[in-house]
Every structure is written in C-alpha cells, then in structure tokens.
Amino acid sequence: MSRNAKINTLLLLVVVALAVLPLALGLGDHKEEPFTGADAEAETAITEIEPDYEPWFSPLYEPPSGEIESALFALQAAIGAGVLTYYFGLHRGRRQGEQRALARLEAQDTAAQAASDEPSAERT
C-alpha cells in the first residue's frame, strides 16, 4: 500500500472508531432510550420549557413509518455517494487515459527518431 493510501485508510478508521466507541462503551446506557436524535431531544426540551407550546404547522408529507423514513435517508446518502464516486471515477479514468495517450506519443516519438536515425547512420 502506498503512503497515500495508508493515510487515507487511517483517516477512515479514526472516523469509524469515533462512531463505534460511544456504542461499544455503552455511553447511551444512562438514558431511557439510548442514542435518540438530538433534534428530537430538542423538541422534548422545548416542551419542558414551554409545556403549552403547540407546533403551529405540520409537515406537508411525513414518511408513514420508520422504515420508509430510513429508506428515504438511505436514498439521500446514496444519491450523494453516487455523485461523489462518479466524480472520482471520471477523473481517475481521465488521468489514466491521458497517461496512456502520453505513453503512445512517446512510443511514436522514439519510433520516429529511430527511423530518422537509421538512414543517416547508413549514409556515413
């Protein structure tokens, strides 16, 4: 593995560790419902501060179940990941294509040079 790839893998591993450690160490155990969303916790805090507050508008569309909601979240991540990998794949392919074209040019150059060198060598 090149040094570059090692650093990139290490970066990913640290991110994974940061996500897994809270779970592995049971940092959510002190809660009734561990690892709920912070957004939902904020809603609870609002109703604690102002028990009479009623949301005055409700979402136009609400995913009918948790499964549909996670499907839509996965869709969001998939769209993003798809565009990102397209970008990097395209550029990798372009770079490889350029390198191949360069190699071909070089091969032609040397072949042409050899061809032009030969007759002059015969003449002398």
């Binding site: 940061l18 940092l27 690892f35 916790e41 969001q76 991540a77 993003g80 990941a81 798809g82 990102l84």
Partner: peptide, 20 residues
C-alpha cells in the same frame, strides 16, 4: 453538494448517548 447530501444523512452516535 453531494458531500453535504451524504454527510447530513449520516446520523452518528456520540459521547452524550444521542445521535446527530
């Protein structure tokens, strides 16, 4: 834009025992 799409869809556990 895609990077924002991916990252804001990833709810990750944190040290406080909640996800964000």
């Amino acid at each position: 834009g895609a990077f924002t799409f991916v990252l804001s869809a990833l709810k990750l556990p944190s040290v406080t025992g909640s996800c964000s």
